[in-house]
Design a protein around this nucleic acid. Structure first.
Lengths: 301, 301
DNA sequence: ACTGAAATGGACGTTTTGAATGTTTTTCAC
DNA sequence: GTGAAAAACATTCAAAACGTCCATTTCAGT
């Protein structure tokens, strides 16, 4: 699959004429790069951004690297969660991909797809498991499928270029990779250079990462806590370290009950991906106004 | 670091064709140095100047950037492991991807790339961690990068169409997802419909999966054993279940010492991805001769 | 329903691109 | 050194993209 597309290719992909495409490029609706001879070249990510932003139709998704879509059906978010849960449990990866990608192409914010479709589907699967209607391996297999889809989605994002680094991780013993991977994508979507360290990272190692990388944000998705008091102590110690480098600490996850939260120090608690997105946007704007604390306080307009 | 680049390398780097590059050189848009035999050589800074001046795209920055990947070197498997380890530890995902995909596109078998490049790189990282030259988070972050590359590789494979189903998993408590994911790709490469259930699957759930799906193979990658005697008992029980549905059980992984293996029942033990590939090929051929035990015994040529 | 502004997409002659071909140079293993 | 494989060379040529012009369609406001 190629990374740079010609106006004609993009025109074919989205069902518009070549002339229109060229006009849109010249108007700046699509950012193009030029060859030495003056031919326009459109990066795929840019084409995807355009489609999502203008909710333009996509006639031939495969040109943009989006494999399967049955158009017009999956554009509304209602009912998608149920369909996804079914597709996941029947191991129908194609269908799962189509559901998520359709919503993505239709311009639904990724945070909303995550909150209202993927998270809901997994809640459904979790409940089936509790009622012995689904086995553990089915839930795990669904996670694998979802992870692959998330990775594919991630590869469709424009790579981050801001200097705003965020680190993400799950705590030691917490193996649930889905939420933390979703957070990474959400943060990248709003312009952060989000780097997922991985699952089950000890607090000490996180502290080392903070000191070495000096990120502006650390996000932790906490789905499972093995030892509550050790967790609280370790976490608050980590918060101390983070404060020294001016790193915001954002937490989320179903294991954080109100009681536990009451005993934690953190910069923000996010219930949903939507909340995370909004907090990240706010923090980003602030950081851009005052890029570094050692920078000179103001300059002339 | 390589100072002079060939037209082909620059063409690849900026996503243009070699022909165009040469034309641009001859038009004087790029200043070239010539070898005695008349081959064009482009200094890196000249290529960078060209890119900036013409607002040209850069598809593969690593060629113009720091990592000295002369693509002749890239095709050969020697030295790739070291370069990959470095790229992983410096968090240079682009470079990691380029190393693996160059080998893949050059026709190296995936099993060999896994055994001789990825596995070796992670062994290097593991040793650095033991010598306190690398932190846990760096190793985990490297795993994340590798996983993303594996998923990308998987998405490039032709989807399986044979009825030969294989199930894969790691045992409960074993969170090392890399080997089991590599196995999945290797099996798909040789025509199996390999389905990765996921990490940390209890033996009971695996048994359920076998009974419900009735695969022809179950492969387990065992990197970590928490309770040895429980493992041996659980595993041998699983082997019993598998025998009833005629499911071959293949094992591998660094946690399987000779002593432990002596107490296990299995169909095959595979040290490397190469071994797994060969065993899978053999088993596939056999299964195709006698597709199902209930099938009619022979048909006319 | 009518009108005019704005957007669309086809048509054109010209220029650029990139694949193919056969020859020469470079590289690397022996 | 030597020889074979890989890569770069020059050249050719069809396909594709360029800019421009213009007829058609769309749509909001009478």
């Amino acid at each position: 699959m190629q990374h740079l597309l010609s106006p004609k290719q993009v025109a074919n992909a989205i069902g518009a004429s070549e002339s229109s495409l060229k006009r849109w490029c010249d108007q700046g609706l699509l950012t193009t790069v030029k060859t030495a001879g003056g031919h326009r070249r459109i990066p795929v990510q840019e084409a995807l951004r355009f489609v999502r932003e203008h909710n333009h139709a996509v006639v031939e998704p495969h040109i943009l690297g989006m494999s399967a879509t049955d158009d017009r059906k999956g554009r509304r978010i209602e009912g998608c969660a149920e369909r996804l849960a079914t597709a996941l449990l029947t191991n129908n990866e194609q269908a799962c991909q189509a559901i998520v990608f359709d919503l993505f192409l239709a311009g639904q914010p990724v945070s909303q797809i995550f909150d209202e479709v993927i998270a809901v589907a997994f809640r459904t699967i979790g409940e089936k498991w509790k009622c012995h209607e689904a086995d553990i391996y089915e839930e795990r297999c669904s996670c694998q499928i979802a992870l692959r889809i998330l990775h594919e989605l991630r590869s469709k994002q424009t790579p981050p270029n801001s200097g705003l680094v965020a680190l993400g991780a799950t705590i030691e013993g917490d193996q649930y990779a889905l939420p933390v991977t979703m957070s990474e994508i959400v943060l990248r979507e709003v312009g952060w250079d989000a780097r997922l360290l991985g699952s089950s990272i000890p607090f000490d190692s996180m502290a080392n990462a903070i000191q070495q990388i000096e990120p502006r944000m650390l996000w932790l998705s906490i789905s499972f806590i093995s030892d509550e008091s050790a967790f609280i102590a370790g976490f608050n110690r980590l918060f101390e370290t983070a404060s020294k480098t001016n790193t915001a600490v954002v937490v989320g996850g179903r294991a954080l009950t109100t009681e536990i939260r009451a005993r934690l120090h953190y910069s923000a608690f996010c219930d949903t991906m939507r909340h995370l997105e909004e907090f990240a946007k706010t923090l980003r704007r602030q950081a851009e106004i005052a890029p570094t604390k050692t920078r000179k306080p103001r300059k002339n307009a």
